[in-house]
Nucleic acid binder design. Sequence first.
DNA 1: GCGACAG
DNA 2: ATCTTGTCGC
Length: 197
Amino acid sequence: MRVLGGADVSTLRFDPTRTVHAAMVVLDAQSLAPLGEAGASRSGGLPYIPGLLGFREVPVLAEAFAKLPVRPDLILVDGHGLAHPRGLGVACHLGVVLDVPTIGVAKSILVGRVQGALPDEAGAQAPLVWQDRQIGVALRTRRGANPLYVSIGHRVSLATALRWVLALGRGRRLPEPTRLAHEAASRVRLAATAIAE
DNA sequence: GCGACAG
DNA sequence: ATCTTGTCGC
């Protein structure tokens, strides 16, 4: 494992043009030092529809991916992977399209419920279950913060996904790749709207 | 029919 | 998802 990637998008709350600004970042897996980033914007796509997030975000994320200076060996995606009504969240979707291993890292639940208690301590975890099946894990990365929901994306086991997210926390709620991608996507949006003026 | 509902 | 400074708590 040499290079890690992070993927996220930024949108305006009410945007008639439905423009989605995407960003992908790459960082050294060892030091977590940023290696580069790329962005892309696209309008006229689908609106946000729970369960169909991949169809809205993957096309523009793939566009950003093509501009990356280095190909990541593993990508952390902001959103669910397997923890989805049809087992095909945006993380799985992106992984299949790019043919790159992915992990789903969501900030809230789409389907399922957390089984058991989740202590308010960093590292605490509990199964995310849906229809009598474990589809992911609720992981408290920081005490006092709402948990993250980690699930399989593409070609990565849940155990491995969990290990990565735990290792990339850096004392903050979001793992570094996703955190940087979120900031990058926000910059892509701000820059695009500034130029449009 | 009603409520839930990643970003 | 985004709007936003100060503020409450460890």
